[in-house]
Design a protein around this nucleic acid. Structure first.
Length: 300
DNA sequence: CGGTTTTGACCGGCGC
DNA sequence: GCGCCGGTCAAAACCG
């Protein structure tokens, strides 16, 4: 556990190296990686234990989400704001006020109700692979099962339409993401070329999610987010990279993962330098071997 | 051709 | 023990 604490106290680039390293204490072999039963009988990894124990982290609380909502919106466009809109084409895709199903809040499992427009699925910033679909008893809508495409990550989610509102998706997340969302992507090759922004775009129609207020304190809002990103970004933060990070696609800051990550990021912000002694990545030519879409790692 | 989705089979938990 | 139900697997189909 001392090693874990030491890692969190290192500078951001060292932290990333740790995260990239299979031998890192952060990435001890996961329990029940692909065969775990969703539920309470899954023994936590050391990371989870760490989050759960030493840091007093017990999964996202309602307060975390509330705090993150206020953080990401800076009071500029509250969810009660009657003029609040995402865009002309897609106005909702927002977390409803009753986004959290407290009944499912235990065991790192929680549900969100996300209202969409049309068929556009809420993009929470992670890449998911569908691994199953089941029709649910007493429900006309099937439930889809997704796993995070990052092989280091055992996060899962289930998505189904609400019975009472076909525009509302009920998304149940389980497990902790061990990386950042993919839209932060800066590397689109097998080499560490931070200067080349990615050209890959999402498939299909995407909601025009706008993180910048239509009305208010845009600069102040950007500044806060930039500071947050700079504290965890492993490479030089030139203007191009910054614009990528700050692109509308890159910051779905109102969505779930960042809500959960935010308390942890604030801890990273306050860290001081230390060394780490861990080995290199298994494939040093590709720092992100699981997917070119993942540009840098983080913790959720 | 490789990655993703679909879909029926399989499995385990749970209630009766 | 049996049946139901939800979750997962894995082969086939699909797609870019």
């Amino acid at each position: 556990m001392d090693e874990l604490i030491k890692v969190t106290q290192g500078p951001a680039n060292e932290l990333v190296e740790e995260l990239l390293d299979n031998e890192s204490p952060f990435f001890l072999p996961q329990h029940h990686h692909d065969h775990g039963v969703m539920g309470s009988n899954q023994s936590p990894s050391m990371l989870e234990s760490y989050l759960l124990g030493s840091m007093g982290y017990s999964g996202p609380t309602i307060e975390d989400v509330e705090t993150s909502l206020s953080y990401t919106n800076h009071g500029v466009h509250s969810f009660q704001h009657e003029e609040y809109k995402w865009s002309e084409e897609c106005r909702t895709s927002m977390l409803e006020r009753d986004y959290m199903n407290k009944a499912n809040h235990d065991n790192h499992k929680y549900s969100l109700r996300i209202k969409n427009c049309g068929n556009i699925m809420a993009d929470d910033g992670y890449k998911w692979r569908k691994y199953g679909q089941k029709s649910i008893k007493n429900s006309p809508n099937p439930r889809s099962y997704y796993r995070c495409t990052n092989p280091r990550c055992s996060a899962k989610k289930q998505v189904e339409r609400s019975m009472d509102d076909p525009d509302t998706h009920i998304i149940t997340y389980e497990g902790l993401h061990l990386h950042f969302p993919y839209p932060f992507s800066l590397i689109n090759s097998n080499h560490m070329d931070w200067s080349v922004p990615p050209t890959k775009k999402h498939k299909g129609p995407q909601p025009e999610i706008q993180y910048i207020s239509h009305h208010g304190d845009r600069i102040a809002q950007e500044t806060g987010i930039k500071d947050c990103l700079k504290s965890i970004y492993p490479g030089p933060m030139d203007q191009g990279i910054e614009s990528q990070l700050m692109s509308p696609q890159g910051l779905l800051e109102d969505m779930v993962p960042l809500m959960i990550r935010k308390p942890f990021i604030s801890k990273l912000n306050n860290t001081t330098a230390s060394s780490s002694s861990c080995a290199s990545s298994p494939d040093s030519s590709n720092p992100f071997p699981w997917s070119p879409d993942y540009s840098f790692l983080g913790l959720i």
